[in-house]
Nucleic acid binder design. Structure first.
Lengths: 236, 236
DNA sequence: CAATCATTGTGAGTAGTGTCACAGCGTTTG
DNA sequence: CAAACGCTGTGACACTACTCACAATGATTG
């Protein structure tokens, strides 16, 4: 039930995931600890078994740009594979404690090269990633901060949304205004004002920090959404 | 001589490129024609042999978000490989006539799966792409439009820059203000004002539509550049 | 349960950016 | 060579978004 659409999307990469899962090494994810930080040499990648990890870019001036929030079944650190300079470009912070399976980067690279089925899955996966990122670009840059927020809400619906009987979508993820701001590249205050305006108009409502979107179409038309498939239009 | 740094970066993917080059089918690139447009079914990808192609996302309201400008030796259309919904998400417009080798998508997918060396090269290439895009995100979103422009100029230097004796970098590419605006997600007028301010301060100069950057460090410090390697910090 | 802390909510002022309108200038074209 | 065209340059103005300051609310803890 939880995170329906995302679960469906994940099914595609079962082989890759199950291979990762076979790893002997499992580590605990302690809240507020870092799985890795940008600049660190990247020798491993991780399959989240439980808990939640936030992947973001942290700027020298303290600002944070959030890319993904990964839950159970998701792979983190993948973009370090097959690179000359094996350093993490992003930071992965634990925001909900749990466990992760650890995979050696070199081992996985070897596996990927000798196992064609695995190769195919990996390529599919990384292509999808790239396509997601590209569509996100337009949304975050071309329609101002309002466009960025609306697009983020739509993506959150596709990634973590639970459809309700009345057609609304419940986003099953606790997000502070600041977190949303980090996703959009804007400020907490701006997010707050925009969210309140949306509440006022009945587009969304909030309960205990979680958002329900009542009128997804409003958000979509406002940003001239071209209805890209939900597995592309989501939080990476 | 031309496009030094980029040429060096390209050497890495010689196998992939030479395989593409072996294609029997070569098509002419006519100015202002489209190699492909977003939404079109994607069955082919292209190796530019000569001329220049601009890859961008075109919004319904006419705005354009430019991602890459590809010259001789570059591959276009790659992100359609290994996807369920094989449609182009972007548009490739010819801005300088020339020729391109055409490759069937399915054939290349097959090749990639049976030829491990080719696979490795492809994975390296697509990883690099993804890393580039990620670093670009921060620059375009986090430091306002000025940050977006400065970052674009830095990337142009890394992609098309020719170092001069006095340490300046000559960007060997004719770009209208509007083109730069499309790269940054801003307006022609804003770009114009910012460029003129940079000229005034001696940071850059222009001659016949081409920019020379005299003080790259100024641009870098202004956007808190973390000196990512030039093969990452460039126009895709 | 009072105190503390984290988060949300809001106003006022300011800097940044987009829009519109139009002048200037060089190139192309009939 | 005059007219048309495409691009650059610039001012005025409106609107967007950020900053700062602080009140209000809610959650946590000793």
């Amino acid at each position: 039930m939880e995170r329906q659409s995302r679960t469906a999307a994940n099914r595609d990469f079962s082989l890759l995931r199950s291979w990762l899962q076979s790893s002997k090494k499992v580590i605990p994810l302690r809240k507020h600890s870092f799985l890795f930080q940008e600049g660190m040499p990247a020798n491993e990648l991780y399959l989240i078994l439980s808990g939640k990890v936030q992947v973001s870019k942290i700027c020298p001036d303290g600002k944070e740009m959030c890319f993904r929030i990964c839950g159970s079944g998701e792979i983190v650190g993948e973009l370090t594979l097959f690179t000359d300079d094996p350093r993490y470009l992003l930071t992965a912070k634990v925001i909900e404690p749990g466990e992760a399976a650890v995979m050696n980067k070199n081992e996985l690279e070897e596996q990927l090269l000798i196992n064609p089925t695995l190769t195919l899955e990996y390529m599919r996966w990384i292509s999808k990633h790239a396509r997601r990122t590209q569509t996100k670009f337009r949304d975050l840059i071309m329609n101002g901060k309002k466009g960025a927020l609306y697009s983020t809400l739509i993506r959150l619906c596709n990634s973590y949304g639970v459809p309700l009987e009345d057609g609304s979508i419940f986003i099953d993820l606790t997000l502070k205004n600041q977190d949303l701001a980090n996703f959009c590249g804007t400020t907490r205050e701006s997010v707050n004002r925009m969210l309140n305006a949306l509440k006022q108009d009945g587009i969304i409502s909030m309960k205990r920090g979680k958002i329900t979107v009542h009128d997804l179409n409003y958000l979509k038309t406002e940003i001239q959404c071209e209805d890209c498939p939900p597995d592309i239009c989501c939080i990476e």
